[in-house]
Design a protein around this nucleic acid. Structure first.
Lengths: 216, 216
DNA sequence: CATGTATTGTCGTCTATCCGACAAACATAC
DNA sequence: GTATGTTTGTCGGATAGACGACAATACATG
């Protein structure tokens, strides 16, 4: 899933933004490391250069994943979230001051910034809608459907889907317990909605059927 | 509650923004009227001039209130939300095209835009945190505490609080049913945490006690 | 191959919250 | 005053989903 819908790495390639590239410095993080946390109050903006990074809220023992960033995604460290590397990753980081300067000088950056914030906001609203209105089964099927549509690979009339998430991680995205998600997924298998293909690989034999379940 | 934390009406008074004022046109709405809804896809940006306006998500019969805007607040109509006038209100409206032009020409507007979006986003995250991690009682007490701190009037060692919400409306902010909120509120009354003072008016005899409940 | 660790499936118990129903209280209009 | 609508309080039943516990896998690593 492209979290913001806009690939900033591509944007940075554009010739207008040569000077912009220079304000970023690179920073790398090992798999599992927590890159930013809500306490530290440096205001930083960063772009994922490589790897995979998880944005999440934490409260006592519980965690809720807001999204997973991939190369080209932009985010800010001052939104009160944790940022954790899911794989060895490298980020392009800069401080908000520089960003402000850029916004004044480079109009394109500006519009991009607003666009990205808008996308993130829309995503946040849809998360709220899910939590407020839908039960876990509905959130699960909707999530699978979206992932399948965005990154499923056609195979034998159906779709193959590589989620690359443990059940535990999936449950943190859905806002549920590991146990509940595990049980619901297995119910879906029994009903033939999905077929298990090994470590976090799934096959959806009939996308229509899944759509029908989601739209009810 | 100031939804975005920034009063755009004040900002518009600033001399730098004279031309900006001209791109907005006024629009009024009667109490209860739905001003924008998610289907209509005009991309508009608006500022509350007078009155009170509710931003909410809707799904089937249910509604979840994201926030209530007051004069000076800015919002955008393309975020997939309903916008409803809680009282007779008037808005300053403009389309996104004009906003983009302004962003290029007036740097101040730009920064303000990003700042407002940031605030809204932070609010959205705290809503998600509430829904994901806390039960309704915790959300209720936290809400009352925040309102008391922001707009409570000192009285006789405690705070008087005019919420101006029916229980039903309050329950839509908290993401719960009317009945549950009603019961929990009356429990709080019995425990002496709050005292009822008539139609949506409350008295908090001991703010510390309320804080203690919230921080556990 | 053996051993340790991480991931998954499943079951029973427990509780917060929803939902429908209804009456009481209150406000508003006639 | 009475009548009518709106807002509230409360109760009992139903249930989704949390939680703890444990066994069964699968996976990695020496």
């Amino acid at each position: 899933m492209k979290f913001s819908g806009i690939n900033l790495l591509d944007e940075l390639q554009k010739s207008e933004l040569t000077d912009l590239r220079d304000v970023f410095h690179s920073r790398s993080a090992k798999k599992g490391a927590i890159i930013f946390s809500p306490e530290q109050d440096e205001d930083l903006v960063f772009i994922i250069e490589s790897g995979k990074v998880r944005i999440y809220l934490g409260y006592e023992e519980k965690e809720f994943t807001l999204g997973i960033l991939e190369p080209g995604d932009l985010y800010s460290s001052h939104a009160g979230c944790f940022v954790q590397a899911l794989e060895d990753s490298s980020l392009l980081v800069t401080d908000v001051q520089s960003v402000k300067r850029c916004m004044a000088e480079v109009p394109l950056f500006n519009r991009t910034m607003v666009r990205v914030l808008g996308k993130i906001l829309q995503n946040a609203f849809s998360v709220i809608g899910g939590l407020a209105f839908k039960d876990i089964y509905a959130r699960l099927t909707a999530y699978l459907l979206k992932e399948a549509q965005e990154s499923g690979v056609p195979f034998d009339g159906g779709l193959e889907l590589e989620l690359d998430l443990t059940i535990e991680q999936l449950s943190q995205i859905l806002g549920a317990t590991r146990q509940t998600v595990s049980t619901l997924l297995n119910n879906m298998v029994r009903e033939g909605l999905v077929v298990k293909r090994g470590r976090s690989k799934w096959f959806i034999p009939d996308l229509k059927a899944l759509e029908d379940v989601v739209n009810t």
